[in-house]
């Protein structure tokens, strides 16, 4: 037993985030919905971890709980060993919806996190310019969000989160609303930034392809109530080739596991109609 405890300890030391027995129920007047049921996993330092699952499986809810925007009904989430209570700057989040402040220029949007931290104007602009360059939007510092395309706005949102220097970046289908080409470009950008900045990323997506292309490990969730069905490590060198045999093998394996879950969701929805 003692040896197991020691192994566990070594594991936990490399873990930045631990999710322990997390349950989330949404209770409305008419009914109670179990969204997330007893989920356990951990995220390692500098890891790129993705969560895939059928729509409505609670993966976004899980991410929102980690961000501190929802409270678990039971269980706990530990960030570097400390239980999280509400949102915090060390857990930056990029949303699927556009969340830039429309009255602020790109530069001031990227700088807002630093502004909240109380960093002087000159310094926070300097840092922000660096990140605007990193996301490939040099020259757009003085543009307003409405002057940018959807893909550019998402880049700014990513830049804003990174400029704030979080310990972990939570991404909730950040490329979900974008067309395929823009999506592919941004996936590569994200990998480049992740490599350079050595951040921990927890990435929610419904695209198996995206998850395999990006991640060190992929968590597969079941249909509602969301549980962890499997965790698949992706042992492929980067940059990964989508048409390589290994990539396709991974895809088959994950899609197969997901298929039952998607069918369950489909049946569930049909019954409820």
């Amino acid at each position: 037993m003692e040896i197991f405890d020691k192994i566990k300890l070594v594991f936990l030391m490399s873990a930045i985030l631990e999710i322990k027995n997390v349950v989330k129920k949404f209770i409305s007047e008419k009914k109670e919905v179990l969204a997330v049921d007893n989920v356990n996993f951990y995220v390692k330092h500098n890891e790129f971890l993705s969560i895939v699952g059928p729509s409505g499986c609670g993966k976004s809810t899980l991410l929102r709980m980690i961000a501190g925007l929802e409270t678990p009904t039971s269980g706990e989430i530990l960030m570097e060993g400390r239980k999280i209570k509400g949102p915090g700057a060390e857990r930056g989040m990029v949303f699927q919806q556009y969340t830039l402040l429309p009255w602020r220029k790109v530069l001031d949007n990227v700088a807002i996190g630093l502004e909240i931290k109380g960093i002087p104007k000159k310094e926070r602009y300097e840092i922000s310019r660096k990140f605007i360059k990193m996301i490939g939007l040099e020259g757009f510092e003085d543009s307003y969000p409405y002057e940018l395309s959807g893909g550019m706005q998402q880049r700014v949102a990513i830049g804003r989160t990174l400029a704030n220097d979080p310990k972990i970046v939570l991404m909730d289908e950040p490329f979900g609303a974008l067309d395929t080409q823009t999506r592919t470009i941004l996936q590569n950008e994200l990998l480049r930034i992740w490599n350079k900045d050595k951040k921990t990323v927890l990435f929610v997506t419904h695209s198996v392809d995206e998850a395999i292309y990006l991640s060190d490990r992929v968590i597969i969730m079941t249909a509602r109530p969301g549980r962890i069905k499997d965790i698949i490590p992706i042992d492929l060198d980067r940059p990964r080739k989508r048409n390589s045999m290994e990539f396709i093998e991974y895809k088959k394996k994950i899609v197969d596991k997901l298929k039952d879950e998607v069918l369950k969701t489909y049946n569930m929805n049909n019954y409820s109609i």
């Binding site: 501190g68 949102p87 949102a157 989160t161």
Partner: peptide, 25 residues
Amino acid sequence: KILIESIETLGAKEKDILLKIILPA
């Protein structure tokens, strides 16, 4: 609500939300 949530994950407290989101928005 998403604007408020997004700056909460950047470390905003009640005062920041009121001054930097609610008032300008």
